[in-house]
Nucleic acid binder design. Structure first.
Length: 284
DNA sequence: CACCATGTTCCTTG
DNA sequence: CCAAGGAACATGGT
């Protein structure tokens, strides 16, 4: 599921449901999902503690855990990878096919399901220390964005994906923000002047906060196996009512008309990732 | 069979 | 040190 807006919507949804709940047991079904401990020790490290905080940082979910069973208060990081989902399931209910980890909360299971198993749950919270600034933070200024780009000769699209430069932007919203800012994806990041940096700053905030606002109003299916949350990007869920459609302006729209000028959207490849832009609106 | 996919990390090469 | 490219991880959709 994951880019900043999706993780934010998920965290807002889960916070009131998780805070104060006690972890009674842990089942690790996919050993590689948990780090840095072996599954058994990972389970011991969680069991008996309560959730005392739930935040988002970049694309990470940050679980605050109470002290317990000899462990101090500490943080557990969750990352959804490409296909990870996290949801509460009332007991009893069948677990989805690709369930990686289950936390027993008593009347509910907190299920971490992940088809491709790229997601992780890790106690190595130091990863947060090198993350770049939050683009939606109130104190995030155009100067901060300029700082994240300064000195880089990388294409701006590639630079936006660097989590240590700016936290939370992924492949979809990078293309979307550059379209809104009318900046060519291949422009060297450090060569953007104040005018374009300003436009990008505004575009990032508009695109990301717009996606959060959208995700917050859609009737989401948080429950288990049905598969679709109806939250994400494409709006390809056939059960959707059309609200999803037309959400993304250029991503995955190669060959379709630019919503601003009608020219055919082009797909290119940068750093191995598909990149979408309008060759007229985003000319170099 | 081919190629694509919301992400990250590691490795090699220049 | 920086940058770029490729592979790996793993499964499913088209």
């Amino acid at each position: 599921m994951p880019e900043l807006p999706e993780v934010e919507v998920l965290v807002r949804h889960l916070r009131p449901l998780l805070l104060g709940r006690r972890i009674r047991g842990v089942e690790v079904r996919r050993a590689k999902t948990v780090r840095p401990d072996l599954p058994e020790r990972f389970g011991q490290r969680l069991t008996g503690r309560r959730f005392v905080g739930l935040e988002r940082r970049g694309k990470f979910i940050v679980f605050g855990l109470s002290a317990g069973a000899g462990w101090p208060v500490e943080r557990l990081l969750g990352h959804l990878g490409m296909t990870g989902r996290l949801f509460l399931q009332p007991l009893p209910a069948p677990l989805p096919r690709h369930t990686a980890v289950v936390l027993d909360l008593g009347r509910h299971h907190l299920v971490f399901e992940d088809t491709r198993y790229f997601g992780r749950l890790t106690f190595a919270a130091a990863r947060l220390d090198t993350l770049g600034p939050e683009p939606l933070a109130e104190d995030f200024t155009p100067a901060d964005l300029a700082g994240a780009l300064r000195g880089s000769r990388q294409p701006i699209k590639v630079r936006l994906l660097d989590q240590d430069a700016l936290a939370g932007v992924g492949n979809i919203y990078a293309s979307e923000a550059l379209f809104v800012a009318r900046i060519a994806p291949t422009t060297p990041a450090g060569r953007l002047g104040p005018v374009r940096v300003n436009r990008l700053w505004e575009a990032l905030r508009e695109v990301l906060s717009g996606a959060i606002a959208f995700g917050s109003t859609v009737p989401l299916n948080w429950a288990g196996e049905a598969g679709r949350d109806r939250l994400f990007y494409y709006g390809q869920d056939p059960a959707a009512d059309g609200v999803h459609v037309e959400r993304l302006r250029v991503y995955d729209r190669a060959g379709q008309p630019c919503p601003a000028c009608g020219v055919s959207i082009r797909r290119t490849r940068l750093a191995g990732r598909s990149t979408f832009h309008c060759p007229r609106c985003q000319a170099r």
